[in-house]
């Protein structure tokens, strides 16, 4: 049986957390190029140029891209034939602790939602586990900013609301909160499942590359249509007006109850920090 040491997981997580705070994804940089070509407002293009410059400065590894270096969220796929030498949960949490302290990242996590005292090390991270076939450990990481997370929404639609209801809910969510969520945005949309599954689908979608379309052509087309419709809202870069509001729309779907049509929109800002490691 293959074995991984907890310390190895800790080290890989810490490294990933630091890297993602400083080095913005190539897909986002290509998204900025696309934005410059498609943004009709001069003020909007000026914002995009500032973001490109910001990405360049941050990539030197001295000052993070954004001061909100996020609350860490993980999707962890554990191969059932893999043995972990150590405590998996604690190894990941320790990776976040070390990454956020050693990387000079902001500690943005409160121990309790109402009594609001900072844990001072950005833990706990939110970790979703899945047992899968094989002997590998796949860790998908997101450093999710609070401003964009606050603008996210979920609705339990009626089946009769249909695809139009889903489209309207996504567009309405961007219309209400898009300006506050640091556009241009990456939208993670979950459709189906039940109440909590739908939110998790949306989070998974928000942590997918904006250049990867849903493998089902029906949903891939819906992703493109929603992108176009959100960009027609006029919100623009930083909400100051313009023709580029979203860089991409990612949809994840799951089976659902015959009376249900849940939909969730998890908004990601233009940093859209995510990364993946396989151990």
């Amino acid at each position: 049986m293959r074995t991984i040491k907890g310390a190895e997981i800790t080290e890989a997580v810490a490294k990933l957390a630091i890297e993602k705070a400083y080095k913005i994804g190539d897909e986002i940089l290509r998204g900025f190029e696309w934005s410059l070509e498609n943004e009709k407002s001069e003020a909007g293009r000026e914002i995009i140029r500032q973001l490109q410059e910001n990405a360049k400065i941050a990539a030197d590894g001295v000052v993070p891209y954004c001061q909100d270096t996020g609350m860490a969220v993980f999707f962890v796929e554990v191969g059932q034939d893999l043995k972990i030498d150590g405590d998996l949960e604690e190894s990941i949490q320790e990776g976040i602790r070390r990454g956020y302290i050693d990387g000079y990242l902001r500690k943005s996590v409160y121990k309790d939602p109402l009594r609001r005292v900072n844990t001072s090390d950005n833990t706990p991270a939110i970790i979703h586990y899945q047992i899968v076939k094989g002997d590998k450990l796949k860790i998908t990481f997101g450093a999710k900013g609070g401003g964009s997370e606050n603008m996210s929404r979920l609705a339990m639609l009626k089946p009769s609301d249909g695809i139009e209801g889903v489209k309207n809910f996504v567009i309405e969510t961007v219309s209400i909160g898009g300006a506050n969520a640091c556009p241009p945005l990456v939208l993670g949309v979950g459709i189906g499942g039940n109440f909590e599954k739908c939110a998790i689908l949306a989070k998974k979608a928000a942590l997918r590359s904006l250049e990867v379309r849903n493998p089902d052509p029906f949903y891939a087309e819906l992703e493109e249509e929603l992108k176009e419709k959100c960009n027609a809202l006029g919100i623009g870069p930083m909400g100051l007006g313009g023709t580029v509001t979203v860089l991409g729309v990612n949809i994840e779907v799951f089976a659902c109850h015959l009376v249900a049509l849940p939909v969730a929109v998890n908004i990601n800002c233009h940093a859209a920090r995510h990364g993946e490691i396989i151990l």
Binding site: Q50, E53, V63, P64, C66, C269
Partner: peptide, 13 residues
């Protein structure tokens, strides 16, 4: 005044 959200490294300068 609006500053550019997310431009943390640029504003640092």
């Amino acid at each position: 005044f609006g500053a550019t959200g997310g431009a943390g490294a640029l504003i640092n300068k």
